[in-house]
Amino acid sequence: MKLKSLHVAVITLVLIFGGIALTTVLDLWKTTNDKVVATYKGGEFEGQSDPADIRGSYTFDDISNAFGIPLEDLGKAFGLQDPSSFAAFQCKGLEGIYVALKEEGKEVGTGSVRYFVALYKGLPLKVEEGTYLPKAAVEILKAKAKLTEEQIKSIEKYSVDLPAVSATAPVSELAGTPTPSPSETPVTDRVIKGNTTFQELMDWGVTKEEIEKIINDKIPKPGIIIKDYSTTKAVEFLTLKEPLQTLVDRKTK
């Protein structure tokens, strides 16, 4: 069997546009993140948004809109400090903040947000093992959600103590000992490490503008770990760390 260039042209166009048309009909062709949370497909809660569909890329604003939970509750429950950052905060950012917990087999991440939302709204959800809630979230749930005795016991058991509700600081030593919030970090400890975020720098008194001058770019999200940011920008972490550290040092003098 032989093919001419006309055949290749036609087959290429048909496959590409036919594929797009077909997947559009099947509702698989998505060029944007429309952030529409899927709904329960049957049962008592049919038609209601299903917290199981909350994804890491969803912001607290998306979730607040989809489930009608006040932004303030979401932000406070998950230890965010700056109310202006609540709306744009993406669930997956939690994994970066509570990274140290993971090593202990306790996870505070997107799964925890799903859990929180489900309990807050009284919706059914299959919770994955190892999913924990921050203590602040438990308190909010106890105050605002209708929980059974059993649920209260369970969330109390699966909660992690984050006495210092920090914006985005990695929780380093969580084994019971309270971690000071960034603003309470002893001045001498203000050293940029591999897990330091832009938000921490701001908490230490460096302004957004000063940081942006150094990185020669806009800060994509305050919660981003500086080291990750440098990787995505393909620049050496050190080349950012040093001038930023100088700034921090200047502020602490």
């Binding site: 290749v8 496959l15 997947t23 698989l28 998505k30 060029t31 944007t32």
Partner: peptide, 21 residues
């Protein structure tokens, strides 16, 4: 997004038949 994934599959299909068209 999903669209990029679909285009990737179409491109693979084309490549299996005709190479890197």
């Amino acid at each position: 997004h999903e669209s990029a994934f679909i285009l990737m599959l179409i491109a693979f299909l084309l490549a299996i038949a005709f190479g890197p068209v």
